[in-house]
Design a protein around this nucleic acid. Structure first.
Length: 150
DNA sequence: GCCAACGTTGGC
DNA sequence: GCCAACGTTGGC
């Protein structure tokens, strides 16, 4: 059982969308490090911090969990998709996605507040220049955040 | 394999 | 809109 933080721009997919749908396919990831986390490490039942980025109030807005393991991302083969990858072949898919489902909404826990807790200082999200959309969360960070999100 | 150029991310 | 940071691309 591991824990993760997943970033999304709410203008493209928000906690409201997840609340309405209940679950979603995490398609469109086109970064090898993030793909490798999904492919190699993310298991059904893993905990997910759902984070809004590139918006007026960046921060954690919900808790989710992995509801299905990685499988080939269909958008890579769809020529009309913005995530189309002409170099990827169906017999050797380059990109995968997991599924996540909502556990519950939380209050907005702003980036600014995350930065203020020494207990969270090692989170990749908070490191300068970090852009990775999926990052691991330690068990200690997860427990700490559960209390802050009660 | 190096590395400059370019594109993207994301907070501010 | 700015810009720092980083990943990817492609010529050599």
């Amino acid at each position: 059982m591991r824990y993760w933080l997943m970033k999304t721009e709410p203008t493209s997919y928000s906690i409201d969308d997840l609340a309405r749908e209940g679950a979603t396919s995490w398609t469109g990831v086109r970064n090898y490090q993030a793909r490798n986390f999904m492919r190699d490490d993310m298991k059904v039942g893993d905990g997910v911090l759902f984070y809004h980025s590139s918006c007026p109030e960046p921060g954690i807005v919900g808790l989710a969990e992995v509801s299905d393991a990685a499988h080939p991302d269909p958008t890579q083969f769809d020529a009309r998709s913005k995530y189309f990858d002409p170099a990827s072949r169906p017999d050797a898919p380059r990109w995968v996605n997991v599924e996540i489902k909502l556990v519950r909404r939380t209050r907005l826990l702003p980036l600014e507040e995350l930065r203020a807790y020494p207990e969270l200082a090692a989170m990749p999200l908070l490191q300068r220049g970090n852009r990775l959309s999926i990052t691991p969360v330690t068990a200690a960070e997860w427990r700490f955040l559960q209390k802050k999100l009660k």
